[in-house]
Design a protein around this nucleic acid. Structure first.
Lengths: 400, 400
DNA sequence: GCACTTTGGCAACAGCGTTGCGAAAGTGGA
DNA sequence: TCCACTTTCGCAACGCTGTTGCCAAAGTGC
């Protein structure tokens, strides 16, 4: 259990090839890979599972699944039969008849799988346990000093994770590896890292973490799969899973200014997880120096305005940078988050919105209005998004 | 002939579903679709065909294809047998033996398919005929006045296309529709449009084209599939097909300033083909007014510097905007093109490069150097890229 | 000349979604 | 109350996919 895509053949097939995913683990290293029957099976199963999740407590009927996937009803019946057998789906009542046999409604069984999300911030640790639906079923918080050294930090993290999972799901002799429904642990933290290898790079102020193979070290210690990503990416992923569709940018204004980009439902990280460096976008040529060494960066301008007690000006500056991004990527929504935003949400939403509206008016009919909202989820958003790093692959949106 | 993915079943299957493509034509409208065996077949066939193309004249052996795709050698044998039967692939000699039977080398048969690329510029028309390899086998040019009305412009385009195809491949009684190996016509033109529907929007200076359904009208007139895209996107697509891998930005500096973005080998257009609006990125808060109505846009600053006879300053300004883009998207290369660039290529390559290098130095080890080059292809690049709009789907990179 | 290695095709196979058909479970009119 | 009709959905047979087992072909090297 615990693996939706488990093949029963046992021989050869089911090599877990991504279909057109591009960045999946490829035999030849790099390029897109071939599709075999095992891949078809898991692709379709994941698709159905994703639709079941999106349907939520209301559930969805087999025929609706067939319409949405383009598969025949019979294929959906087979797939859902397997999912029910494996415990991931269950019947949930009947629809009203429309003149014939009423449709049976299927729903996801959230307890069939769990994931842990870890938000590793500079001074705080937050760990959540979520079910397949993404609902938080347990949480732990602890103070943390990222500068206290790897052993100390990893100990705190491992302790919190094991404690949380033990309370929520129960630990057997094998530790976390023995918890059947636990898919793994997602870790989100600030600053430069490589999400494909899970290796950290020189975090500002914490040089001792440079080159630390967080994914592998923590994975070995816990005995379950570990995935690592930037905090802004995790937040964006959480928003995406939380119903925010299409393409959007999550702008985080706290002690710094960063962005998480979701393009076509997938988090865009770039080949080196470097994408989303929004804060050091230059919007004032030869402007005031920024601590990064450049001049006229949004982050410097924006935070300076905040420091001067001029949030409206900060919002305007942020809006200009957001408008640049909207034009460059043609995204649908801008979501704002972070402590500075939550301090005065209305000022920032209005200020950024005004700049974007002015841009849309200049564009005319084509330039659709790009709404600005405060990101949902609050303080727990990053940890929940980190858990989605494990859940997402189950639901058909492989690498995002 | 002419359709690699033709199914022989004739019933039901082969609905042309994309696998995980996300933006493919979906039954339920929108979401990703289910995969059936026909989809597997065309996916793998396209993959193999793409590798054959990439191998060029050197060719590639079955076992190498198997390694690169992750498929078994036997599957590759079956697939290549079909491709050979259909005329898309052929044997091309033997490798040196490594102690056993020497590998037989396969190569693409470029003449098995052709596509037309049309570059519709404000004052000029350029039409190219290319083979499966992307090699230009015919070209026509003509003066053009976009303001002369749809009938006149379409007549000129249709005439040039039919003449070119007639010369190159021969026309029978059915016109273009009867030319077996012709896949279709790709049209690239400046300014706002919707590439999914092929409808134009208010082009600056040519209001009469607003809302014109270019794809459908020209498609009906020519009797072959027509695809429409922005000129910068086509140029980027051409560069991508021309060997430029990974993620890059093509910056075009001519009468205006625009960009084509390739992310992970796919052209990023955004949901409304609005992505790549690079020129009206604001890099000087409250700077000099731009004709778009905003202030401090790169385009205005850059072109003003060019007008003042200060190309180095123009290059620096362009570099700052390029650095913003590099940081936001974490791309690998910046390619420059357009008449203003080709006038003084060295100045711009150096000027932009200096800004990007300075950025990389600030980033430290992680911030990989982002090289700057003049885009290959020259004046014909956009037309060739337009033809790739038809060729690309054959080779496994579906919607890009 | 013979043993060995490597390539790649033929045939049998397992597993995928699809099709044909029928049972189950409702509605609604006679 | 009965019966015709509609709609859902599972069973069985089917066609197609890539996979596996096996063997002929075509080289190398002792």
């Amino acid at each position: 259990m615990g693996d939706v895509n488990s093949t029963r053949t046992g021989t050869g097939t089911g090599t877990g090839m991504g279909m057109g995913s591009g960045a999946a683990s490829a035999p030849g290293g790099g390029g897109p890979t071939g599709a075999n029957l095992g891949a078809v099976r898991s692709h379709n199963a994941a698709l159905v599972l994703g639709l079941l999740r999106d349907a939520g407590a209301d559930g969805i009927s087999r025929l609706e699944l067939a319409e949405r996937t383009g598969l025949t009803p019979q294929a959906v019946s087979k797939i859902t039969a397997r999912l029910r057998e494996e415990g991931f789906a269950a019947q949930a009542g009947l629809r009203a008849s429309t003149g014939g046999k009423p449709r049976t409604v299927l729903r996801l069984v959230p307890e069939a799988g769990h994931a842990v999300g870890v938000h590793l911030d500079r001074d705080e640790l937050r760990v959540v346990l979520v079910d397949l639906d993404g609902a938080v079923v347990g949480e732990r918080r602890a103070g943390l000093d990222l500068g206290a050294g790897a052993e100390s930090v990893l100990g705190t993290v491992a302790g919190a994770v094991e404690g949380l999972v033990g309370d929520g799901l129960g630990l057997d002799d094998d530790g976390l590896a023995g918890v059947g429904t636990l898919l793994g642990v997602g870790v989100a933290l600030p600053g430069p890292l490589d999400h494909t290898s899970g290796v950290l790079h020189r975090m500002t102020g914490f040089p001792e973490w440079d080159g630390f193979a967080l994914r592998d070290v923590l994975g070995a210690r816990l005995g379950v799969p570990v995935v690592v990503d930037k905090d802004t990416n995790a937040a964006a992923l959480g928003l995406s899973a939380g119903g925010e569709g299409g393409s959007f940018a999550y702008l985080h204004l706290g002690t710094g200014l960063g962005a998480g980009l979701v393009i076509g439902g997938r988090v865009h990280r770039g080949p080196r997880t470097g994408a989303g460096e929004f804060g050091h976008q230059v919007i004032q040529l030869d402007g005031p120096p920024c601590e990064c060494g450049d001049r006229g960066c949004v982050e410097a301008l924006c935070l300076a305005a905040v420091g001067r007690g001029e949030p409206a000006e900060a919002a305007r500056v942020l809006g200009v940078a957001a408008a640049n991004l909207v034009g460059l990527l043609d995204i649908d929504v801008v979501l704002l988050g972070g402590r500075t935003i939550t301090g005065e949400p209305d000022v920032f939403v209005r200020g950024v919105g005004e700049v974007l509206d002015a841009r849309a008016r200049r564009e005319g009919a084509l330039g659709a209005e790009v709404p600005v909202r405060v990101a949902a989820g609050g303080e727990r958003a990053v940890a929940e998004g980190a858990a989605q790093l494990l859940l997402r692959p189950l639901f058909g949106r492989g690498d995002a």
